[in-house]
Write a protein that binds this DNA or RNA. Structure first.
Lengths: 93, 93
DNA sequence: TGGTTACATCATGTCGTGCTGATATCAGAC
DNA sequence: GTCTGATATCAGCACGACATGATGTAACCA
């Protein structure tokens, strides 16, 4: 799921969505990317459960799910904690 | 920096290092990957400041830096917080 | 009903990135 | 000094993901 944030354009889309829900046309305008490209990235984010699509007439609003980001953050924090507690136990060759 | 955790093998290496510092030969054995491959990934992690190399004779021990992981986690948490506070401000078309 | 707009999907080309084999370096053992 | 083992670097290749143009679909408006 973290892998989704690796792509620059996808990270930018996530960042824009953190400023509030927006429809595809906004994201296309703000990123400068082509519409099919943005749409494809939104699909990936949706499939991963990072965003939800809310159709309103012919517009589709996308909303970021904070829980998903927090879950990823917790995963990293837990990893950091493990690294810190095990910092002293070096495996000898 | 988060992009480094996107690659499966690199993520596995980070996970192994979270169990304690280890040398390259351990990581090669545990992952089953070829030595130049592991060495290359360690270089990327080192360049990004996620791990540090501690040469001991002809062995090189790698140690995970929890601060780097925590910084990435904080970044995600901050993004989630922004998304939560701005959840109501939908941009109209 | 025809046209326009917003959005999604598909097929294709391109490019980055990871993997590998070969090779170099460096430290320790003899 | 020579040999061996641990690690790093390099060149080439292959695969996957991204970007794009073309096309399809659905909703609104005249």
């Amino acid at each position: 799921m973290i892998r989704l944030l690796a792509d620059p354009l996808r990270a930018q889309i996530v960042d824009l969505l953190a400023q509030g829900p927006a429809c595809t046309c906004h994201l296309v305008a703000d990123t400068g990317a082509k519409q099919p490209n943005v749409s494809g990235h939104l699909r990936q984010l949706r499939d991963a459960g990072l965003v939800v699509a809310e159709p309103h007439g012919r517009f589709t609003y996308y909303r970021l799910l904070p829980e998903a980001l927090e879950a990823a953050a917790a995963q990293l924090t837990e990893l950091a904690a493990r690294a810190r507690t095990n910092a002293g136990s070096r495996r000898e060759c």
